[in-house]
Every structure is written in C-alpha cells, then in structure tokens.
Amino acid sequence: MPEHRLSTWSRRTAAAIAAAVFLLPLWFMVSGSLREPGTPPPRTPELLPWPVSVESYRDAFGLVDLARHTANSLAVAALTVPIAVLVAAWAGFAMLLLTPRARNVLVVLSFAALMVPITALLVPRLTLFRSLGVIDTWVPLIAPALLGLSPFYVLLFHWSFRRIPAELFEAARLEGMTPFRTWRRLAMPLVRPVTAAVALLAFIASWSNFLEPLVYLFDSDLYTLPLGLRSLEVLDRTNYPILLAGAVVATAPVVAAFLLAQRYFLHEDRGAGWLGR
C-alpha cells in the first residue's frame, strides 16, 4: 500500500475513533430517551430500544413546563449572545487602539480576571443585583454580557484583530474611516470564524448556566431550562427515560448551534481569510 494511502487511512481511522468518543454518549442519550417511561436502563449498551417510544418526551413536557423553560432559555440566550459578542468585539478592538504598554496591562488584567472563579463572584453580584432591585428577573443573567461575558472572549477578539496587517487599518484611516466604521466594515468581516466561535461559546455558557438562575430566580415562570431539568430530576428521580428525554431537549439546541456555526469554522472563506500577506 502506498505510503500516502496508509497515512490517509490512519488519519480517517483516528478521526472516526475521536468522533465515536463524542458521538456515542449523545446517541445513547437519544436511544435511552426512546425507551418506554419507567423502564430501567439497559444492562448493555443499546443502539436502539425496542419498542421505540416517544412517551418519555410527552411525560417530560407534562411533568415540568419544559416548553416555557426552553423558551425562557432561548430568550435569555437571544439577548446575552449578541450583547456579549458586540461588547467583546468592541473591547478587543479598542485594545488595539491603545499604546502597547496600556494594551499589555489590559491583557494581564484580563488573565487575572479569568482566574477568578464564578463562585467567588456570586455573593458580591447577589448583593449588587439585590440593591438594584432586579432579583427574580433575567437582568442578572444577561448583565454579565455587558462586560463581554468573559475576558477570554475579549482576548480572542483582540488577538484576532492583531493578526490583521496594520497597513489595512492605515489604509482605512487614509480613506477617512472612523474607528467605529473601521471596526464594523473592515475588522469584523475579517474575523468571522472568531465571531462564530465566540457566539457559540457564549450561547453554550448562557444555555447551560445553572448556578446563576438558581441563585437569582424564584418565580418558576422565569426558570431557564437547566432549572427545569433539575425540577424533572426532583419530581421523578428514577424515571431514567424521562430524564434523558429532558437532556435531549436541552442538548439539541447546542448541537444545532454548533452545526450552524460549523460552516464558519470549516469553510475556507479565502475572501476574508487571506490577509494580504
């Protein structure tokens, strides 16, 4: 067998193994959710149960208002993600306009902020939001997006903007572009894969956020999906297919978001990817 065929074959095998590692748990979650409600977990891995049943989904939506919780999570994410992407991109671009020394200070501070655990922020944030009178609303869930959600997203944008040759920005300056127009018309179109990545990460962070809704929300009508899943577990702890049905409902939007964003990661948009070097 020629050497290049062997290397192609071994690459594909490695890719298939890696894909299986990630896809099999997802599949077992789906197949488990298709078992009849109340049945115990199978003793051996089961690719497809027999008989296939969607009763668990009906029961899951009946036990807990999963539709409302899903809609709430979508609403929170729909507000959080665009704000987080915008603010992180603005902050990353603004850092580019600073002197190198000021820029380095901000990078170090961002790293320091990244090291602070979210649990350490819970009490100060709770005090702050309580004094603002916004407890039991979605404001505490969305407000961190006004800071870019995470310093990591700001740094991602900043590093991406730094990859763009300075001459492009200088050409824009000579044409009379303001910093805002340069950001919007020149910088952002050139970092589309990073924008997609940050949007996806922000969506996952918002969608899977359990701790903060638990602390800030009391009205069950405002609950997001992670709290709904928690309710499902509390109400019927041993009903394994129903729990898995809830998990499928919670996971499906994340998978869909990844598939949507994937084209930005994999498609080589040379129009934007070629940076004139």
């Binding site: 050409a171 300056r173 000579l174 044409e175 572009m177 179109p189 050139l190 934007a272 070629w274 004139g276």
Partner: peptide
C-alpha cells in the same frame, strides 16, 4: 490623514481581502 487629500500605495498593497476589486477601488 484623511483631510490631507493624499493617497498611499502600501508595500503589501493593503487591499481589503473581503471586498471585490470594484469595492476596493471605490472604498474611499
């Protein structure tokens, strides 16, 4: 810079990669 009414051709040409030739020329 923009108010000096000068045009500059850069060493790397500094063409905007995401724009067509027409949009690059008409950008200013």
């Amino acid at each position: 810079p923009a108010a000096r009414n000068v045009s500059m051709v850069f060493q790397s040409y500094a063409l905007f990669p995401h724009l067509t030739v027409e949009d690059n020329i008409g950008f200013g």
